[in-house]
Each structure stands twice: as C-alpha cells, then as structure tokens.
Simulated scan of single mutants.
Amino acid sequence: MLATIRKMLTSAPHAPPSAATIAAAIDHLDVKMVEARAALAAADDRRADAVLLGDAAAADVRQTITALAENLTDLTAARDRLVERLASARAAEAEVERQARYDAAKAAAEAASKALRSKYTPAIATLRSLLRQLETAQALAEAANADLPEGAAPIGDPEIAVRGIPWQHAEVISETKVERWVQSGGDPRFPVSIEDEAKLKVTGTDRAVMMVQRPIGGGSVEHTSIPYERVKLIEIVKRPGVGGQVAPQMRDLHLPGLRLSDGTYSPPGYFAGHAAIIALLDEAERPVSAAAAAVNAPEPVTEYRAVPIEASATRDRFELSLPATAEAA
C-alpha cells in the first residue's frame, strides 16, 4: 500500500523530495487511510456473523481485523512522520529562498558600490565642469549685455535657454468681425455669452431686453428688464504671453566628492555672484592633503566589569577585575 508513496518520495542523492511532493504523498496517504478505516469497519461488522458460523470463521475475521488495524496504525505513523518532514522541507525551502534573496541583494549592493567607485567621481567632475562653464558664460553674457553693440539683441541665459521656458510674447491667432449683444451703455469687451443669448427678448431692430429678478428686502424681489443692443465687434483669438520659467539651477546642486574627505561644492546662496561660485568650485576641486584625508584612530579606553568567583560556605561575593598595575599597587 505504501509502494506508491515510497516511489513519490524516492529522489536523487543529495536531493530530498520537495515540500510539494511530500504534501502530495500526505494527500495520497489520507486517501489510503480512509480506505483502511472503511475496510476495518466492514471487517468488524462481520465479526458477529463469523462467530455464529463457527470458530474457524471467527478466527479468520479476527486475523483480518488485526491485520487491518496494524495497517491503519502503520499508515497513521507514516503520516505523522511525513507531516514532520513536510515542516522541515518547507523550512528548508524558505531558507533557500531567503539565501537566494540575500545573495541577489548582496550582489546588487556590491555592483552598486563598484559602479559608484568607478563612475561617481567622473560624473561629479563632469557636473562641476559644466557648472563652471555655465557660470563663466553667464558672467560674460551679463558683461556684454551691459554694453551692447548697436542693434545687437541681448544674450539670453544659456541655462534657461536649455532647461527653462523663455519669455513668450502674446500671439494673435485670428481677428474676425462679428455681431454680438452688449448691454446698452456697457463695455463692448464683455458681450453676452452665446449661452445667455437665449435669455434675451428681442424688442426691435438690434434691440433686446433680459428679464432679471432683484431682491428689494423682506424676502421680496422685483422683476426688471435690462436693455441690450446688437453691435459690430472684432473677435480676437490670441495666445497669451508667458513669463520665463526656470528649473532649479545647476548652481543650486550639492555636489559632494566620493569620500568624506573629498572636496564638496555646496550652493552659496541665491544672490552669490559668478566669481564666488567659481571660487567654490576651485575649492572643491583642490586636492585634499594626506593629513587632512586621514581618519584618526580612536584612543584606546579602559573598561571594567564584575566577574563572579566561586561561592564559599560563608560568602558569595563578586570581585572587581582590575589591571595588573592596579592590583600590584
């Protein structure tokens, strides 16, 4: 009966069955135990009839019941052992998964550290060089704009030209002659909307009124009419002007070196001049001396702890462990 289960659990050397295989074996074993219990119940049900038929028949049934009971005991014991192995297999597989995640994370961390060591310093050097170039160009542009040649257009900020939105003047898209209703004596720039024209009641040529309600106090309202007239207008469709917008500037970046002791460029403030920023870049790029880069080792310290000594018949105490020089003193 256990041959199928034994076959399910047979595996190559050093490759124990998986948790899924053991679970399947337990399911198969559960089916066999149900069958065994049913067979044992049927045999026990035949016991009384066998006794009435004679000693030989009764002996055969008792032998069958004993064999079935032993088989059920064996199946129960086997199932209990498989449950233990299932728990161990699941724990082992979970550990394999944890180890795999750990190995992958460790490899990713080592790769990131390697990339940082090889790529960070050149990247920072590139950004600092770019910032230096921008600041120099902006300083030259400001100086040139302060004394422009005749007819020359001012030079725009080189960073805003790439990373910002330059000033855009208003643009007229179309101009069309139209006829619209306007309140009599009102501002022609604000004609009645197309939706509200349905509320107008035409009273004559190019004349109309709109009935409205006005509160007069005490919860009462009065109905009044507002006169409108139809006039000729020029409908102008245009794209409004947009002021220049600037992304965070390069000068606002914090550009530390790779190591703690390396030079660092930090933003000097919004109103800092170009010369001040270039001076900060010079300072950040200046090689750090070996003495400044060295990390001082901490001085050794002395600590004490109480240690137990063997208890005597009359006392149980702790003695303080002191340095040899102190004991000698």
Rank of each mutant, 00 (worst) to 15 (best):
176 T>E: 15
276 A>G: 04
136 T>A: 14
306 A>M: 13
243 G>D: 14
139 A>E: 01
50 A>I: 05
53 L>R: 13
90 R>Y: 02
92 A>D: 11
87 A>E: 13
180 R>F: 03
289 S>M: 01
273 G>N: 01
268 P>W: 08
12 A>C: 08
60 D>Y: 03
143 A>R: 09
190 F>H: 10
253 L>P: 00
248 P>C: 02
223 H>W: 12
154 P>F: 02
178 V>C: 05
252 D>P: 00
77 A>L: 14
75 L>C: 07
21 T>R: 05
6 R>A: 14
197 E>V: 08
18 S>H: 00
124 I>L: 06
49 D>V: 12
324 A>V: 11
186 G>T: 02
18 S>A: 09
303 E>C: 07
46 R>Q: 09
50 A>C: 01
177 K>G: 01
128 R>F: 00
237 V>M: 08
156 G>C: 03
63 Q>Y: 03
271 F>W: 07
170 A>T: 02
193 S>P: 05
68 L>R: 06
31 V>R: 07
235 E>M: 11
259 R>I: 12
290 A>Y: 02
301 V>A: 14
261 S>I: 07
256 P>E: 12
300 P>K: 00
181 W>C: 07
151 G>D: 07
11 S>W: 00
28 H>E: 14
33 M>E: 13
306 A>D: 08
284 A>G: 01
218 G>K: 10
160 I>R: 09
151 G>S: 03
285 E>P: 00
306 A>K: 08
327 E>F: 10
159 E>M: 00
281 L>S: 01
276 A>N: 05
